[in-house]
Computed example of a mutant assay.
Amino acid sequence: MTNQDQAAGFRLAAGTFATGVGIVSSVYDDIPLAITVNSFTTVSLQPPMVLICLKHRSRLLAQIRNSGILAVTVLAADQRDIARWFADARRPSSAAAFAGVRVHRAPATGCLVFSEGLAYFDCQVRELSEQGDHAVVISETMSYGPLHPAKAPLLYLHGTYRWITSTPSAASAA
């Protein structure tokens, strides 16, 4: 089996695991960058920490190395177009990429948060580790909160965006 065949098989198997979709942003020298991710998870409650993975050649990874800060916005199902836009490597690599998108600054870091998302995590990088063709970034969450938690989440499964047609109410989820 060639390396290319092995990578394709691994991608196919990994694609069976449904994940949430988020956008990670950072800002350095007042230049914002962002990218769509599905490699996001919480790591710790005390202190509150999250983990993301980014390709080594990612412009955002270079920016995070320089700034030491990032924000993650968990996307809602009605944000598929935004997810696609920030997954497209052909988008502008400057503030122009955010034209027409409702964003605001995260309170602790000033990174951009997508205002119509489900929740956000405003973070300071604690550890960056090179693993295979990606970097694993573990960050301490300085501020966080819900934005629109009643909206349905955007999911990624079998290489395409999906969503849940109904979500439990906050009362029934408790």
Rank of each mutant, 00 (worst) to 15 (best):
69 I>R: 09
112 L>G: 04
62 A>H: 12
136 V>M: 10
118 L>Q: 01
6 Q>C: 12
40 F>L: 15
103 V>N: 03
110 G>D: 11
55 K>A: 15
19 T>W: 10
90 R>A: 15
132 G>I: 00
110 G>L: 13
55 K>E: 12
77 A>V: 04
77 A>D: 13
135 A>N: 03
27 V>C: 08
8 A>Y: 05
104 H>G: 07
72 V>K: 02
73 T>M: 02
144 Y>V: 11
60 L>C: 10
87 A>G: 09
63 Q>C: 14
130 E>T: 11
36 T>K: 07
82 I>T: 15
56 H>P: 00
122 D>S: 11
155 L>W: 09
40 F>D: 00
44 S>K: 08
149 P>G: 04
153 P>S: 09
170 A>N: 06
102 R>S: 14
42 T>M: 07
153 P>R: 05
2 T>Q: 10
158 H>V: 08
148 H>R: 03
12 L>Q: 13
166 S>A: 15
6 Q>H: 12
114 F>L: 13
149 P>D: 02
36 T>Y: 04
132 G>E: 03
17 F>H: 07
121 F>R: 00
1 M>F: 12
84 R>C: 00
149 P>S: 05
13 A>D: 02
14 A>M: 15
6 Q>G: 05
47 P>S: 10
24 V>G: 00
16 T>S: 05
130 E>C: 02
84 R>G: 00
91 R>V: 12
2 T>Y: 01
46 Q>T: 15
1 M>D: 11
165 T>R: 11
54 L>E: 05
5 D>Y: 06
130 E>W: 07
69 I>S: 07
151 K>S: 12
31 I>R: 10
89 A>Y: 10
173 A>W: 14
171 A>Q: 12
157 L>H: 15
60 L>P: 02
78 D>R: 06
105 R>C: 14
106 A>D: 01
170 A>Y: 08
27 V>G: 02
111 C>M: 06
13 A>R: 04
66 N>T: 03
48 P>K: 10
28 Y>S: 12
107 P>S: 15
41 T>I: 06
1 M>Q: 08
28 Y>Q: 11
73 T>L: 07
145 G>D: 08
150 A>M: 06
41 T>C: 13
52 I>S: 08
150 A>S: 14
132 G>H: 01
3 N>G: 14
29 D>E: 13
49 M>N: 04
117 G>R: 04
103 V>E: 01
97 A>K: 03
92 P>V: 02
52 I>C: 06
85 W>A: 00
117 G>E: 09
119 A>H: 02
105 R>A: 15
78 D>V: 09
102 R>T: 06
63 Q>E: 15
89 A>C: 04
22 G>L: 02
77 A>E: 13
52 I>M: 04
